[in-house]
Nucleic acid binder design. Structure first.
Lengths: 235, 235
DNA sequence: CGAATAATTGAGGCCTATCAAACCGCGTGG
DNA sequence: CCACGCGGTTTGATAGGCCTCAATTATTCG
């Protein structure tokens, strides 16, 4: 539960050293003015910072999170390439953003959104997808058991399965899949509203029952996708 | 789920003459084609319905919720006048919508959003505010205790207090405020990720400690707003 | 006024958090 | 090469908060 800042104190300064800013070739057609490169686990912005810039995740994984004064942390979103973030209704960011893996991130001026209808459409569509994810996540946090949360989390890593248009297992083959978590147990716990110990116990239990295999700490093989899906609570 | 009278009370023609203030600035360019009137606790659309229409809440309160097959429900958003809902990234609604109070709701065609940049701006700004609310709510569901959830819920009803720009108690007066819940205990519980009994117990405990007074089942007087705010976990 | 619905209160149990210790992978350096 | 230390993970024991089930009380409405 207690969130320990990896780069306590000098964190921001040390993180910025990893940032390489590059001019974007096609600045005229595309409003991205520069590109940042971040190492893994570096903060992009903090909750409360002036929200004058937008970001587009070009490569890598980024998490958005909020903190309570006593250190409790909730990871509210996990962003994949293509996502736009740093959007805010008010003058400051309402969440903090941190890379989970090394990332390439396009930077835009917030005002570009007002001047570019094209960008606005991108933003709106991105927000709609994020909103659906948030709705699912609210259901997960409010109503699902620990086992259902972890199962849902793993299923989230398997594209095209578990949702409305789930195709079911591919014909004639084993219904297995290997996924890369790219998150520590602490980050998973903070995303799922659980403790690190509970996440670990659930994963161990799934392993014991043959549902999954642990390839490495952050690589899990799902031995039966359909069976895991049935453990998410949505069936 | 008993009633299927989704358009019950929708009197577009008669509704117009009663409209005093339009939430949108320019009523002439406004693409609202008709206005629905719904009694309290009527469903506007169901999760899974074809998402061909947008809605703008002109008056009343609406909740968005999701259901699991076994009946567990999570209320994901509570909308106040001015909110736009029924937005979806996919072809169908990802949530169900139901009125909490009798409501007046403007109906738009989904395609209007593509043709009207002005509407798109409205939608984007509305989505941004909803997203911030969802982030807060994820923190509530994932990391807050039952008492903190109820306190946060009550503080949500007091405009201008508890957020970043909280002004503190007004000068020279008692810091009290009466709020109308417009929700049953079950709906509050489903919103806060708790059971009806736990909500009831927390409210009783707050009453016992003098923090609040129960005027009526759905009217609560907060005797000390600042004290309640300190129970939300954000201080 | 009485039935139906909603809310409160109580008793007990389960699930998850907490606290604590052991374990593991991995890079370091003797 | 292997002991060592470090951070992260797993496992165990225990406790506590919230849920479940059940009964009572309050409120609404015909």
């Amino acid at each position: 539960m207690a969130y320990m800042d990896r780069d306590a104190g000098a964190g921001a300064g040390a993180a910025r050293q990893n940032v390489v800013q590059m001019p974007f070739a096609d600045a005229a057609a595309h409003p991205v003015t520069k590109v940042q490169r971040h190492a893994e686990h570096t903060v992009i912005f903090y909750e409360g910072d002036t929200a004058d810039r937008l970001f587009e995740l070009e490569d890598g994984i980024v998490m958005l999170f909020k903190l309570l004064p006593d250190g409790r942390r909730q990871v509210v979103e996990i962003l994949k390439p293509g996502a736009i973030f740093g959007l805010s209704a008010g003058p400051v960011y309402d969440v903090s953003a941190e890379t989970l893996t090394s990332s390439r991130i396009g930077v835009l001026d917030r005002r570009d959104m007002d001047s570019s209808p094209w960008l606005q459409r991108q933003v709106t569509h991105c927000l709609l997808r994020q909103m659906e994810t948030m709705h699912d996540h609210a259901m997960l946090l409010g109503r699902k058991s620990a086992a259902e949360r972890v199962a849902s989390f793993l299923m989230r890593m398997v594209p095209g399965r578990g949702g409305y248009g789930c195709l079911g297992p591919a014909e004639g083959g084993k219904d297995e899949r290997e996924v890369v978590l790219a998150m520590t147990r602490q980050e998973i716990a903070d995303y799922l509203g659980l403790t690190i110990e509970t996440v670990s116990r659930v994963i161990s239990d799934m392993k014991r029952r043959g549902l999954i295999s642990i390839v490495r700490q952050d690589r899990i093989r799902i031995n039966n996708v359909c069976a895991l899906c049935k453990a998410t609570g949505i069936h």
